[in-house]
Structures are given as C-alpha cells and as structure tokens.
Amino acid sequence: MDVNIYLYGTVTMGALGAIFAAILVIVSRVFAVETDPRVEQVEEALPGANCGACGEAGCSSFAVGVVEGRVPLDGCPVGGAALVEKLAEIMGETSMLGNSERQVAHVLCNGTRENAVELSRYEGIPTCVGAQNVGGGHKACSYGCLGLGDCVRACPFDAAEMDEDGIPRFNPARCTGCGKCVEACPRDIVVLTGVSRRNHIRCSAQLPAKEIRKVCKVGCIGCRQCVKACPEEAIVMDGKLAKMQYDKCTHQNECAPVCPMNTIQFIPENEWVKE
C-alpha cells in the first residue's frame, strides 16, 4: 500500500477545492448584480423546502415572484397563515406603489337589515354572487350590500367579519389592503382607502331621491348638503350620488352632521383599531 495515495488524495482534493473557491469568489465579485433586498427577506421567511407546490420552480423563484407582484402572498401552501402575515409585513408598505399610506377596506353601504328594505327571502346558495344571480338579489336596492359575506370569506387575514346587522366590518388593524374582498364583491361596493381616512359616504346607489326613500333609510338622496358644507371641496356629485375624494378630505367632519339621511359616517379615532 502506497502512502503517497493519501498525500495525492489530500493535496489534489484540497487544491481542487481551493481553486474552485477562488474562482467562485472572483466571479461573484466581477459579476455582482444588485437585487431587491426584499427578495432575500422573503426567501428567508419561506420554509425553504423547495417543494414546488406553489407552482414555481422553488422558494427563491417564489420570493422573486412575490416581490414582483406576480405571485400571491398566500401562494405557499406549506407556510400557512403565519407565513402570509410575515410576507405581508415585508411587502406591506410597498404593495401600494406611489401611496405611502397603508390601505384598508371599507364597504360603501350601510344597508343593514333594519335600514334596507328586503324584497324577498333568499334561501339559495349562501353567497352574494349566488343571491345576485337569482333575480338580481333579494334587497330592494340594486346597489347595496347583499350581506352574505363573499368579502369575509375572501379575506386571507381574518380582517373582515359579518356584523349581526348584516353588513361586513373590516378591521383596519388586520387589513393589509390586499384587495381580495374588492374583487369578491359582486356589487363593487368594497373600496380601499388610506387607513387614516375617517369620513366615508356609505352609499353606492345611483338612484333618485324618491327611489332611495323607498328602499333604504340611510341612502344618499343627492341633496348636495355635504358638497356645500365641505370646506375642502372634497365631496363631488357623481350622478345622483355624493362621492368622497379621499385625497382631499381633511377630516374636519363638516359633512356628517349636515347629512339628512345619516349616510355619512365619521369614525372617531382608533374606534376599530383597538380590536
């Protein structure tokens, strides 16, 4: 048995390793590419199993997709809800480009069971889309909330819940502004606004005053009182409906007291954030 074989083996392998390491160092210096630091953060938060269950090639590819906005935050079936929260934290502020404020969801309707007239009792598939497809819904107002919770079910963060009065409430402390509820609503009455916005015109009905009074106790009758009252001219008429321009509103709350129908809501500070 030749002793040299140990020597050769050690030296050759050592040299190979050293050479490759040197090449790698040089190449990584020469070909360094700046990447979005969030990609690394997202990749660190991921389980790292590279299982491909998300449909991407692996965790790093998933991370790139998340940062590019191509892949949904809840796309990783392994990580579950805890991971979604982490990713939302990493992506949170920048998911709404050009707007530094965090976005949260609001429903622009206050047609509770008490306020809104119901035409019929709906006993079909318990979803808003289902009700909408059966003769245009069971509520007299064809613009208002159907109250069957499509938005609540769409929410990946448990931020929405259906109140006992049949209107969903969104918890701004949990809402990440992902917009899933906005997409889910068949009547398009869920909107995203900045988390600090406190005046909301909670009606979406383009109906003349006479019709409104027949179908809802708190619908906008288009009287323009709020338009006149607003010192910032933040409220404009959109057809028969008053519309809030959130970027102009300064929360002086001149509008809510003058509304004869109590359509305009003023949220006192931290009412919902307290949880």
Binding site: M13, L16, F20, A21, L24, V27, S28, V30, F31, V33
Partner: peptide, 19 residues
C-alpha cells in the same frame, strides 16, 4: 470530485448568466 465540480460549475454559470 464530481460533487465539487458540478456545484461550483453551476454557481459560476448562474453568476455569469445573471450578469
């Protein structure tokens, strides 16, 4: 030796390609 070669090679190719 092959493990060494293949993993280093792939790394180099990846870095090269990225740039």
């Amino acid at each position: 030796a092959f493990i060494l070669v293949i993993s280093s090679l792939v790394q180099v190719v990846e870095l090269f390609m990225q740039k």
